[in-house]
């Protein structure tokens, strides 16, 4: 490190890591509705960040800004420390941000292989079905996915299996960050467990994972960090291992306006998150 590093880090710990993806003071309004105000968010590799908040807190809007569906009004986004613009979904994808939208966006009539490679088919003159099928098996095996055959149409799969295919599809092209908007909302107990398992595997593979969920049990089961949004603002950033259910609920409902200080992170953060008061 150079002599410029005059401010000593508060906690000597593991070497400082740059977040894969950071949002810096992002604001977004739809007409008169201020959906997001001055949002800060860091996503690290190999970490699951859960974003929680009441209906209308701005979670999906945040996802859509990262996915390139809506541009932000104000603020900046950094990818691996470099400032970037995300004007459209293709750019988001090319940066290495994969989004699994809540409605999955799969083609029911196509089989698993076709869906996995949709828009990214391996092809010379003709489609290389064999190579695609081989890679599909390999990917699903890495995820320990329970799919009976990669040649059945999506219509024949259960909700959890579809979710698995949608998540597997996001991994093609090896993204750095995977964003999942309410991946368990429509699933039963067993299938939810399957998807949570999958999320843990994503973390093991070293992806940064953003999980949006209303289900606190799911969040506490897999998240390393929990970021609370309230009325479009940051309202807390907790280490999952150190925070109780009540604290999160309090932050979500606004009973605590950051009454609780941020917990000391296990590694130094580039900056504190959220407008602390």
């Amino acid at each position: 490190m150079s002599a410029e590093t005059v401010v000593p880090l508060p906690v000597p710990g593991p070497p400082e890591r740059t977040p894969v993806l950071s949002m810096r003071g992002i604001s977004k309004s739809f007409g008169k509705v201020q959906a997001l105000t001055d949002i800060h968010l860091d996503i690290y590799a190999g970490e699951v960040v859960a974003i929680v908040g009441d209906n209308g807190a701005g979670k999906s809007t945040l996802v859509k800004i990262l996915a390139g569906v809506h541009p932000a009004d104000d603020g900046g986004i950094e990818f691996e420390g470099q400032p970037v613009q995300i004007p459209d979904p293709t750019t988001s994808r090319a940066l290495g941000i994969a989004t699994v939208f809540q409605d999955l966006a799969l083609c029911d009539n196509l089989d698993v292989v076709a869906n996995l490679f949709l828009g990214r088919e391996i092809a010379g003159v003709a489609l290389d079905e064999e190579e695609m099928e081989r890679e599909a098996w390999e990917l699903l095996r890495q995820l320990s996915a329970r799919i009976p055959s990669v040649r059945v149409p999506i219509a024949a799969l259960s909700g959890g299996q579809r979710q698995t295919v949608a998540i597997a599809r996001s991994l093609i092209g090896d993204p750095r960050v995977v964003i999942l908007d309410e991946p368990t909302a429509a699933l039963g107990v067993a299938q939810t467990a399957e998807v949570l398992n999958l999320i843990e595997r994503l973390r093991e593979r070293g992806h940064g994972v953003v999980l949006i969920s209303h289900n606190m049990a799911d969040v506490q089961a897999v998240a390393d960090r929990i970021v609370v949004l309230r009325l479009g603002r940051n309202n807390g950033d907790f280490l999952a291992s150190e925070v109780g259910y009540e604290d999160i609920i309090a932050a979500i409902t606004g009973a605590t306006e950051h009454a609780r200080p941020l917990p000391e992170p296990s590694y130094p953060r580039p900056r504190r998150i959220g407008p602390l008061r």
């Binding site: 979904p89 293709t90 994808r93 939208f101 409605d103 999955l104 966006a105 799969l106 083609c107 949709l118 828009g119 990214r120």
Partner: peptide, 8 residues
């Protein structure tokens, strides 16, 4: 919609 989001 799925096709569009897949970049087709």
């Amino acid at each position: 919609e799925a096709a569009r989001r897949a970049g087709i």
